[in-house]
């Protein structure tokens, strides 16, 4: 009886998942078997394994990897420093704050900042370097992506560092470990779960970025995300778009498995 009432509470969420998670995925799989003219085909999958799409997949992974790597390199020392600082809550708030602002607004802000007549170029000019093409380059794409994703990398690592028992560091030190050895053998292994969650939170969304590639990278960087958007909105080839989406979902599931926490 009790179990039954408890199950009742699940109904709203289950309905939600069914309508907006399960059904869409099934729809995507369904659409991926139809061509532009609405005929059943396996051609989309064949097409995915042609060099054009494979290259696109590779480039997606490459950029996502770069974004994750750079975020990690910046986030780990930041998180470490955060645990040592006095006003933790304030700094944490400042780091989280940008993630509350709409993505589109932030992207537009960077259009201004990096634009030909923007403050960055003004600064470069006054330094005697002269106006540079910053917008629509790999650099601006990576910079903005890292900027957007970095809070998602810092937070889990910060939590992992905070959870760590600090007498372990004394213990390692006591047993003869230098600071670097302590980091390599104690701190990093113990915060690996945080690093994994961070990488998951950055890598997976970075795989399917399309708005930043379009606005900041000017479609010079073509990823799976942009390809899906193009197929659905421009070429109207829903079948092909859905096929790419299927692969993206498979890739995500694979990454989730790879970064699964140890028990």
């Amino acid at each position: 009886m009790q179990i039954r009432t408890r199950n009742l509470y699940l109904i709203p969420y289950l309905t939600w998942i069914l309508l907006f998670v399960v059904a869409p995925i099934l729809l995507i799989v369904y659409y991926s078997f139809f061509n532009v003219d609405g005929h059943f085909t396996l051609g989309n999958y064949q097409k995915f394994f042609t060099p054009v799409y494979l290259k696109m997949t590779l480039s997606s992974f490459w950029y996502a990897l770069l974004i994750t790597g750079i975020s990690l390199l910046i986030a780990y020392p930041t998180a470490y420093w955060l645990t040592k600082t006095k006003h933790k809550q304030l700094w944490l708030l400042l780091i989280i704050l940008p993630s509350w602002i709409n993505l589109l607004l932030k992207a537009y802000a960077f259009l201004g900042i990096f634009g030909t007549y923007g403050p960055t170029n003004k600064l470069l000019e006054s330094l005697g370097i002269g106006t540079q093409q910053i917008l629509f380059t790999d650099f601006s794409f990576l910079f903005v992506s890292v900027y957007i994703f970095i809070p998602f990398m810092i937070l889990p690592i910060y939590n992992a560092l905070e959870e760590m028992n600090h007498s372990l560091l004394d213990a390692a030190n006591d047993l003869g470990a230098s600071q670097w050895t302590t980091f390599r053998r104690i701190i990093f292994p113990l915060t690996l779960d945080g690093v994994k969650s961070g990488c998951q939170a950055v890598f997976i969304p970075a795989l399917s970025l399309f708005m930043i590639t379009r606005l900041v990278a000017g479609n010079r960087v073509i990823t799976l995300g942009t390809a899906i958007e193009q197929h659905f909105l421009v070429t109207q080839d829903w079948g092909m778009g859905a096929t790419i989406a299927v692969f993206l979902i498979i890739a995500m599931a694979f990454i989730m498995m790879l970064t699964r926490k140890r028990k």
Binding site: N165, L168, A171, L175, G176, A177, L190
Partner: peptide, 20 residues
């Protein structure tokens, strides 16, 4: 002389064993 260069070892109150 830093702790890692001293010939003393400590047994900590909470043992501080490495959980991993």
């Amino acid at each position: 002389v830093p702790a890692n260069k001293r010939q003393v070892n400590t047994v900590f109150q909470d043992y501080a064993l490495f959980p991993h």
